[in-house]
């Protein structure tokens, strides 16, 4: 099953709609609730990042019988130092992002904790792609 969503820069009103939709789908598929939580927390973090830090992007989700694969690809500005961004507490969030309760530098580390596989690639001036996979069993 393939699902695709568009996320828009700064659109905090709709931030999380893609993750919420994926949550409903996984519930309908009777996936273990603990696994659903790991999936949607990681996806929500990535979705909020694309809205808060980037110029929007796309969320692509592929659900198989035994796993879910999620790709969040944004349109830039890109991350100059991924290793730095992966450390807890490191953030470049603007004040308006912090006003929404985000920007503590917990996003990428929290994705790492919740998924079985995480790959982050980024090119400054082009964009960042976050690939995540969670096994259902």
């Amino acid at each position: 099953m393939h699902q695709e969503y568009t996320v828009v820069e700064g659109d905090f009103v709709n931030a999380g709609k893609a993750s919420s939709s994926v949550k409903k789908t996984l519930k309908q598929l009777n996936v273990n609730p603990q696994v659903i939580k790991r999936v949607v927390v990681a996806l929500y973090e990535a979705e909020v990042n694309a809205i808060a830090h980037a110029y929007g992007g796309t969320v692509s989700v592929d659900i198989d019988a035994d796993k879910i694969r999620m790709v969040v690809a944004d349109k830039g500005p890109g991350i100059p130092d991924i290793a730095w961004a992966m450390e807890e507490g490191h953030s470049t969030a603007r004040p308006e992002v912090r006003d929404m309760g985000f920007g503590a530098g917990m996003g990428l580390p929290n994705m790492q904790k919740n998924v079985d596989h995480l790959n982050v690639t980024s090119e400054v001036g082009v964009g960042t792609t976050v690939e995540m996979e969670v096994k259902f069993v």
Partner: peptide, 15 residues
């Protein structure tokens, strides 16, 4: 004390 739609979304995701 954070009262916006993301509070609800976050709690939905975090169960």
């Amino acid at each position: 004390g954070l009262c916006n739609v993301q509070t609800i979304r976050t709690c939905d995701m975090a169960t």
